[in-house]
Every structure is written in structure tokens, then in C-alpha cells.
Design a protein around this nucleic acid. Structure first.
Lengths: 162, 162
DNA sequence: CATACTGTTCAGCGTTGACTAAACACCCCA
DNA sequence: TGGGGTGTTTAGTCAACGCTGAACAGTATG
């Protein structure tokens, strides 16, 4: 009743699709995210398909993708039929956690090659060390950010409308 | 003479291709990056094509991509013929700068919709505010990281080989 | 037990994008 | 003024992916 037929909401959902598309994720995943961002109550599987005018197959794959990323949680009420979806508790910190995990593997690659690389390649060693240093700093920075998001200082939530 | 015919180097170049591919960038871009990471001297355009066994067209497009990202710089010596490529000065901080710029536009989207959204959608307002807060924190964190990388404390460069 | 509805899976289509090879414009040197 | 080099651009091929629609198994309800 709220977001339906609201041009601002429609545009936002569309733009969220573009944003996720620019990040290499399916467009529909972003649209689901945008819809759940706006809607006050959890949405059912069928409602997602209807509101976004996409197939149930797309809803299935993309909801499971968003679940695996940790930004969306699925509720399956025992008595009621059908699954319901809403944003997770701390969606953005979970997103960052996934990013750091992927970066850990990249970091492991450069450290492994640096360990097995011939020592006479001094320039390569220095450059790989710099890259490893970057990974370490980035991971440290992101991890503190995650903690900051999970344990927010109460006055940090700014509510002013511009 | 160094990286050529070295199995460790070959494997690293291949893995760098996989890493960039996972981030949505072409595989060859990562291979060029890996090669420049290992080589002590700047490499010519032709050498890149030969060493990676790819077409000159791919070298052209991907070197320009890496240039636009700020991680690779092109040298065109006046007397000598041909372009040469090497890693940029502070490659990783420039990379982060590009990321923050893209994120600024996403942040602008959520702030714009929040400003024009009907006020009775209180839940949506709160969630968009939380998302904007996330963007703000992420941008702050990344910006301080950029400064940290550009002005490193001297003892921060760790050289121990594991 | 049958029926209706759930969410998942899979073949098919359309599109996108990486990559190649060839044509191209440019420059330096003979 | 050619001729062999440069890097860029273009058409074309191929694989990967998003998305659909239908077939599928599972479950609760009549």
C-alpha cells in the first residue's frame, strides 16, 4: 500500500538495481533490496515477484543470493504458508564481512608467492611487500568499521533531513 | 629475464588474473598488473603482448583501463620509440579514491530519495537513514585509510618474510 | 487422497562483454 | 617518399550470465 504506485519509490527501486548492477550483481537483487528498504513489513515471496514484475525463478535465485550475502533474512512462519523476507539485523556489517573474507584469500596469494619467490628478485619482493601492507591496512580499517557499525555510539544516528 | 620461465611468477600472474576477474575486471588487466608487480624495469607495450601471449588490442584496452584507475602509468620517452608501463606512485590509494567516488554517487541517490519521500513512511525513512549512515562511515574510514597509505609512518613498512 | 500452492531447478533465449585479428592513422628513420 | 615500426580502433567470434517459463518435488489444506 505504501510503496506501490509511488513514483519516488519506483525510481529508487530502479536505481538500486543500477547500483548493484554496477557492482557486478544482478539487477533484480538490487531491486529486491530497494523494495525491502522501503517497505515497513516483511514481504512474501509472491509479493516480491508481483511488485517487481519478475519471474518466481528470479526471486528464488536472488533472494538466496542476498541471503548468502547476509543482507536479507528469510522467515518461514510455521502456521502460515510461504516465506517472508526482510532486511537482516546489521546488514551492512555483514556485507563488509564477506568482502574482507574474499580479500583475505587475495592477501594469502601475494604472501604465498612472496615466500616462494627467488630472493634475487629484490624489486618484486619490495612491491609484493607493499601490496601485502595495503591488504593489511585495508583489512584493519574495514574490521574496525564493522565493529563501529555493530556497536554504534547512540548519538551517531543522524536524523536531520538534509 | 627474471619473471620469464619462472613457474612461481607464471602462477602469480595467472592468479592475479583470477582476482581481478572476481572483482569484475578483465582477466588480462590483472595479468598485466601481476607482471608489472614482479618486473623490476618498466615494460614496453610489445613486451606485454609477448609475455602474456595476448593481442595488441587487449594490451591497448587494458593498459588504458589500468591507467584510468590510476594504478599504472605510461611513459613515452621522446627519443625512444614505443610506450613503457610501470606501477604508479601510490597505486592503491588511487584505487581507493576511485572507489569512494563511485560510492559518493550511490550515497547521493539514497539521500535524494529520502529527501523526497513522503514523511508518513517512517520505517523507510529510518532504514534509508541507516544506509546513509553506513555510506558516511565507510567513506570516512576509506578516506583516512587513503591518507594513511599516502603518508606512511616509516616503521610501518614491515619487511619480514613471514 | 487429491488439489492447490509453495520454492527450487533447468533448458532456452537474449544480451553483454572479453578477446582476437585486421584495418587504420601516426611517427620516425632510411 | 616510402617502409617498418608504433598504439588505437573496429568488426566479428565466442563464452558467460541474467532472466524467463515450465517442469519438478514438497507440503499443507480441502
Amino acid at each position: 500500500m505504501h510503496t506501490l504506485h509511488n513514483p519516488v519509490a519506483q525510481q529508487f527501486i530502479e536505481q538500486m538495481g543500477h547500483i548493484t548492477q554496477a557492482d557486478g550483481l544482478p539487477r533484480i537483487a538490487g531491486q529486491i533490496l530497494g523494495l525491502l528498504l522501503l517497505e515497513s513489513e516483511p514481504l512474501s515471496f509472491a509479493q516480491l515477484a508481483i511488485r517487481l514484475k519478475v519471474s518466481r525463478g528470479s526471486v528464488s535465485t536472488n533472494t538466496r543470493l542476498l541471503e548468502s550475502l547476509g543482507v536479507v533474512t528469510r522467515s518461514t512462519p510455521p502456521n502460515q504458508r510461504g516465506d517472508f523476507f526482510r532486511l537482516s539485523e546489521a546488514p551492512y556489517s555483514k556485507l563488509l564481512t564477506g568482502i574482507t573474507e574474499r580479500m583475505e584469500t587475495s592477501k594469502a596469494v601475494v604472501e604465498a608467492t612472496r615466500a616462494t619467490l627467488p630472493q634475487e628478485m629484490t624489486a618484486a619482493h619490495a612491491r609484493l611487500a607493499e601490496l601485502g601492507h595495503f591488504y593489511r591496512c585495508y583489512l584493519d580499517s574495514t574490521r574496525t568499521l564493522i565493529q563501529q557499525l555493530e556497536h554504534p555510539r547512540p548519538e551517531a544516528t543522524d536524523e536531520r533531513s538534509k
